[in-house]
Nucleic acid binder design. Structure first.
Length: 885
DNA sequence: TTCGGCGTAA
DNA sequence: TATAATTACGCCGAAG
């Protein structure tokens, strides 16, 4: 095998940066620093390095605007617009990137990147190197030679075309050098170089092919057919000669190839990580960490080190006695992290396999597989009292509490802290947070013991970082007073669960089955054939092909068959109404009867939902397995399901407490709108009041229809209204809807001003906040896509309202939980449904607990308007009667 | 296994 | 110019 020829990669920095800038959407950091060109440059150059594995790399840049070409021709590049202000600062960032990458760059006063590359390519070729030129500029094709190829970027950044001498011959029938003559004839609008009028690329190529070069063409101008071209060639001869000089890349620029100084060498990893982190190039951070792993060559199994910082080697404990001794010794320490590795995701059922502890300067592990949970819990109890740090405290606390430990509030929870810092992120697991906030890879997949130690160590380090960031962001109180204590509240709610009356559930299932069978028959009859009723696709064929009904609207994949469509079709064919009914019953049967049954824990006879604290972008909780926040209530048939939700045993009942109009009250408060505040203070029906204002009638004359419209407008306001959405909702024309909204804003001027201001501020800051300082970043506001941008604006309007409601009910939950724990331990909070709390309590406690709950919910935070809580109580979730004290 | 359509809640 | 009013979770069929 012949010895490998060394390879030199020359990069036209300006060209690649411009390409990247225009090819990519306007990416930016949370602070609004534009990074798309830097990002594109980084990925493009990395791709070239991976694909071609050069031995040497030099990135060349234009230096100043004025070059020798301006001396030849004043108007050179005279039509170029100013560099886009979004792009200009990115050049400095690219240079920082190159420094971190340990790559050579090159610029020389009075020369363009082209000239430097031309010169270096000649020198490289002369030295026997294989030279590759990375650029988006076709002008560089003139540099192609036997040892010089151009990597031409096509279609943005996605494709690279390797152009060599053969390729040019094939597409133009010319040698690379002759491309200069072609350009001299046709000119270059982008550089403001005039060509010969009437000569475009086709003619120019053909002429040069025929006569060899510009001078050859000019010498034979008389022979050229086409009188106009011939004439122009004569009159413009000198201009073409000038153009040729301008188009020629200078291969004699004052620059010398120094191979020792431009090796393709490993980067300064720390610097690259720091810069990527600063620019929020998360995907690239991961690539770098992977590269570091390989570079380091260490087997991750052999070390407990988190890359970049080393964790102390963990002490391996052999028994609970040793653990107890260690915990006694940790008495004075703050900042202890505790991790418990379980053998399954269901922490109400799982067993513990390993325990990890980490503190300042030390760590310890204990394999717990053979240990009685109660013994482990008892040993850990003293440690829990000093409020250790967890990742997902609820999981560990529920397990320990189940095992019999008395648990206290956590001292920290990295999952919750990470969520608060960016609630929109899709993941808040420990490895992801380490990557995001520490730029460290947390390697998993070891033995449970090592994982426990490593995760505890990582959680401890991570928590310091997160706590600092929370303080800077002004979310310390929200974190410590609301979210951290809430972990324990939610854990207790999940553990206790909601008791289910299985007989009622089974009975409903049987009834639904009967109904579905009858409906299925009827629909097959009307359709004239059997088909899968649950398949929208098959249904569409029946409705729109077989029965010839008119399609109403489309989905991405075909004609829609949703409820709104079926409602319209109901006038044309009896099958539509049957289908609506079928869908309703099928939903209830599959999701709510069959879906719930297997989730009822046979030991407790209860449903133990998961209340997820780190899912929603607004600060709300979510509920899953099962979702108990969307149990039907609007339609009677579905509502009856609630009969199956019962208290834990005789002598107990359910108490429901819900906030009345909490979102509109919050809107009144944060907007400061006088009219709305006054209405709430007078205790008026806000929808009726809104109707009176919008329709210009006295309160007493508001009709039910007027109130219904006003209610829809109020909802719309909270969601970030559009006339289109409102018109659809109310079945009115868009202009009528527009009119309603205008009249609304005329009466509630404070609301209008607030909604405008909140969007403007979000644009300024990059995020919106709630009353307790919860944040949501809104990068969509800066999208170049109009729809995405509008979405961002509606989110900016809605999130402070929805999020503040979440703040308030969460704070109330924490307070109520403490009060009940102390005063009415048999009374339990069991569910939260966004603006509503459900309790399972002894009948005897009803008067006291009802008062305590209502009072706490209404006065947990004082707004400019009163908060109103309505109470209901009863033997199940369906049969609730208003409760008066 | 994943995605789209659909439907339930606040 | 044409336009999904916010936030979630779960079931099913169809496509992979």
């Amino acid at each position: 095998m012949p010895p490998k020829t060394a390879r030199l990669l020359l990069v036209d920095g300006n060209s690649v940066i411009h390409r990247a800038f225009h090819a990519l959407p306007p990416l930016q950091t949370r602070e609004g620093i534009r990074t798309n060109a830097v990002y594109g440059f980084a990925t493009m150059l990395q791709k070239a390095r991976d694909m071609f594995k050069p031995d040497y790399i030099i990135v060349a840049f234009d230096h100043s605007k004025v070059t020798f070409r301006h001396d030849l021709y004043d108007e050179y590049k005279g039509t170029r617009p100013e560099t886009d202000p979004e792009l200009r600062p990115q050049f400095a960032l690219v240079k920082r990137l190159l420094a971190a990458w340990n790559l050579a760059s090159c610029e020389v006063e009075g020369y363009e990147a082209d000239d430097l590359i031309g010169t270096l390519s000649r020198q490289g070729a002369a030295a026997g190197l294989e030279v590759l030129i990375l650029t988006g500029d076709r002008d560089a094709l003139q540099l192609v030679g036997d040892r010089v190829k151009v990597l031409l970027m096509r279609r943005g950044l996605s494709q690279v075309e390797v152009v060599d001498r053969e390729a040019i011959k094939k597409s133009y029938g010319l040698e690379p050098e002759q491309l200069i003559d072609v350009k001299a004839l046709m000119g270059d609008a982008s550089d403001n170089i005039p060509g010969v009028p009437g000569v475009g690329e086709k003619t120019a190529v053909q002429l040069v092919r025929q006569y060899g070069d510009l001078e050859g063409v000019l010498a034979h101008s008389r022979e050229i057919k086409g009188r106009r071209v011939a004439e122009n060639l004569e009159t413009c001869a000198d201009q073409a000669r000038l153009a040729r000089r301008l188009a020629t890349i200078d291969c004699q620029a004052p620059v010398t190839l120094d191979l020792a100084g431009c090796c393709n060498q490993p980067p300064d990893y720390e610097a690259v990580l720091a810069l990527y982190k600063e620019l929020e190039f998360h995907s690239l951070v991961k690539d770098v960490l992977r590269a570091m792993e390989q570079e380091g060559g260490k087997d991750p199994q052999e070390t407990t080190a988190v890359r970049g910082l080393s964790l102390p080697d963990p002490l391996t404990l052999g028994s609970l006695e040793e653990l107890a001794g260690l915990i006694a010794g940790l008495a004075g320490k703050t900042d202890v992290a505790l991790e418990l590795i379980l053998n399954g995701p269901d922490y109400l059922e799982a067993g513990a396999v390993a325990l990890g502890l980490a503190w300042e300067g030390g760590a310890a592990v204990l394999g717990t597989a053979g240990i009685q949970p109660a013994a482990l819990a008892g040993t850990l109890e003293p440690l829990l009292q000093v409020n250790p740090i967890f990742h997902d405290a609820k999981r560990v606390l529920v397990w320990l509490s189940h095992a019999g430990a008395r648990v206290a509030d956590p001292g920290g929870d990295t999952m919750v802290a990470g969520y608060l810092l960016n609630p929109s992120a899709s993941r808040h697991d420990l490895p992801e947070l380490c990557l995001e906030h520490l730029s460290l890879a947390l390697v998993e997949g070891d033995s449970p013991q090592l994982a426990a130690a490593r995760r505890a160590g990582a959680a401890r380090l991570l928590h310091r970082e997160l706590a600092g960031k929370l303080q800077v962001a002004g979310m310390e109180n929200l974190y410590r007073r609301v979210e951290l204590p809430l972990t324990r509240v939610l854990g207790a709610m999940e553990s206790y669960g909601v008791a289910v009356d299985m007989e009622t559930l089974e009975l409903m299932g049987t009834e639904l089955e009967g109904g579905l069978a009858a409906l299925t028959e009827a629909i097959y009859e009307l359709a004239g054939e059997k088909f899968n009723l649950n398949s929208p696709k098959q249904l569409a064929v029946i409705l729109f092909e077989k029965l010839g009904l008119p399609p109403v609207k489309r989905t991405k994949t075909g004609f829609s068959t949703d409820a709104a469509v079926l409602e319209e079709l109901a006038f044309r064919h009896p099958i539509a109404a049957k289908l609506v009914e079928y869908r309703q019953l099928a939903k209830l049967k599959s999701t709510y009867v069959e879906g719930l049954k297997p989730l009822v824990n046979p030991r407790t006879g209860s449903l133990h939902t998961s209340f997820n604290q780190t899912v929603t972008a607004t600060g709300r909780l979510s509920s899953s397995e099962p979702n108990l926040q969307n149990i039907p209530v609007r339609l009677e048939l579905g509502r009856r399901l609630r009969k199956a939700f019962v208290p834990h045993g005789p002598g107990r009942l359910l108490l429901a407490a819900d906030y009345s109009q909490i979102e509109l009250r919050i809107l009144a408060h944060i907007s400061g709108d006088e009219a709305m505040i006054a209405a709430f203070r007078r205790g008026e029906d806000i929808h009726a009041r809104t109707a009176a204002e919008v329709f210009g009638v006295p309160l007493a004359e508001v009709t039910p229809a007027m109130r219904r419209s006003a209610k829809a407008v109020n909802f719309g306001i909270v969601y970030g209204i559009s006339d289109y959405g409102l018109s659809r909702d109310l079945g009115i024309s868009r202009s009528e809807a527009h009119d309603y909204i205008e009249r609304y804003f005329r009466r509630y001027r404070g609301v209008k001003a607030y909604l405008e201001e909140v969007v403007a501020r979000a644009r300024q800051e990059g995020y919106v906040t709630t009353l307790l300082g919860r944040r949501r970043y809104l990068p969509d506001l800066f999208s170049s896509n109009r729809n995405v941008r509008s979405f961002g604006e509606r989110t900016a309007m809605n999130t402070p309202i929805q999020g503040t409601a979440a703040d308030i009910i969460k704070l109330a939950m924490v307070k109520i939980f403490r009060l009940l724990e102390e005063q009415y331990p048999a009374a339990r909070m069991i569910l939260q449904v966004h603006d509503e709390l459900i309790f399972d309590i002894p009948e005897d406690d009803l008067p006291d607990v009802a008062g305590l709950v209502k009072d706490t919910m209404e006065h947990t935070l004082e707004l400019q308007v009163p908060l109103q809580v309505d109470l209901k109580a009863g033997p199940n979730w369906y049969d609730l009667e208003p409760y008066k004290e």
